[in-house]
Simulated scan of single mutants.
Amino acid sequence: MSEKKGMIMTVKHFMHSLAKAASLSEVAMGQEISIKVDLILGHDGTWPKMLSAWKQGEYKMAEGNKFLITVDHAFPAPTIEDRALQQEMAEVCKEKNCQLYNHGEGVLHQVVAENVDIQRGMIIVGADGHVATSGAFGALAFSVSAEELVPVLETGNYNLKVPEVVIINLDGDLRDDTMARDIALYILGNQEIEGKAVALKGSFIQKASIDSKMTLCNLLPEAGVVTAFILPEDSEEEGNVININVDSIEPMVAIPPGPTVVRSLKDLEGKKITVAIIGGCSAGRLEDMVAVADVLKGQFIHPEVTLIITPASSKIANEMDEMGLTSTLRNSGAVIMPPGCGPCPGKHFGLLSSNDVAITTTIRNSPGRIGAKEAEIYLASPLSVAQAAIKGTI
Results as ranks from 00 to 15, higher is better:
Ala276Cys: 13
Pro78Lys: 07
Ser314Ile: 06
Glu287Pro: 00
Pro367Ala: 11
Val152Thr: 13
Val92Gln: 13
Ala199His: 04
Pro232Glu: 10
Val335Cys: 05
Val261Ile: 11
Ala199Ser: 06
Gln191Asp: 09
Glu91Asp: 14
Ala141Ile: 11
His130Gln: 14
Lys161Val: 15
Cys341Gly: 05
Pro257Phe: 02
Val225Phe: 08
Glu147Gly: 08
Ile273Ser: 09
Leu383Cys: 01
Thr360Glu: 15
Gly121Pro: 08
Ser381Trp: 00
Ser366Trp: 07
Met289Ala: 11
Ile377Ser: 03
Ser332Trp: 03
His348Cys: 12
Ile124Trp: 06
Ile255Lys: 00
Lys20Trp: 03
Leu265Thr: 00
Ala90Gly: 07
Lys272Ala: 15
Asp247Ser: 15
His13Pro: 01
Ala139Met: 09
Gly106Met: 09
Pro367Thr: 05
Val305Cys: 06
Gly368Lys: 07
Glu58Ile: 05
Thr393Phe: 12
Glu233Lys: 13
Ala228Thr: 15
Leu200Arg: 07
Ala136Ser: 14
Asp128Val: 07
Ile205Cys: 12
Ile242Asn: 08
Met50Pro: 08
Leu108Phe: 04
Gln387Arg: 15
Ile8His: 03
Val107Cys: 14
Glu3Thr: 14
Cys217Met: 11
Ala136Gln: 11
Ile118Glu: 04
Leu329Ile: 08
Asn331Pro: 02
Ile230Leu: 09
Glu376Phe: 08
Asn365Cys: 01
Asn318Cys: 04
Arg120Glu: 15
Pro232Val: 03
Ala146Asp: 15
Asp173Trp: 13
Ile187Tyr: 03
Thr46Asn: 06
Lys55His: 14
Val241Gly: 00
Glu26Leu: 10
Glu238Thr: 11
Gln387Asn: 14
Pro303Lys: 06
Ala19Val: 05
Cys98Gly: 05
Asp128Leu: 15
Pro311Tyr: 09
Ile187Lys: 01
Asn169Arg: 14
Pro76Trp: 01
Met252Ala: 01
Ala90His: 08
Ala180Ile: 02
Gly126Ser: 10
Ile210Cys: 02
Asn65Met: 04
Asn331Cys: 10
Ala197Val: 02
Ala375Glu: 05
Met7Arg: 07
Ile390Ala: 06
Leu220Thr: 08
Ala208Lys: 04
Ala386His: 06
Glu374Gly: 10
Arg181Thr: 04
Asn240Pro: 00
Glu238Leu: 06
Ala228Asp: 07
Lys161Tyr: 09
Ala28Lys: 14
Asp267Asn: 04
Ile8Leu: 04
Ile242Ser: 09
Met61Lys: 11
Ala228Ile: 13
Glu376Asp: 14
Arg364Lys: 14
Leu220Asp: 09
Ala317Asn: 05
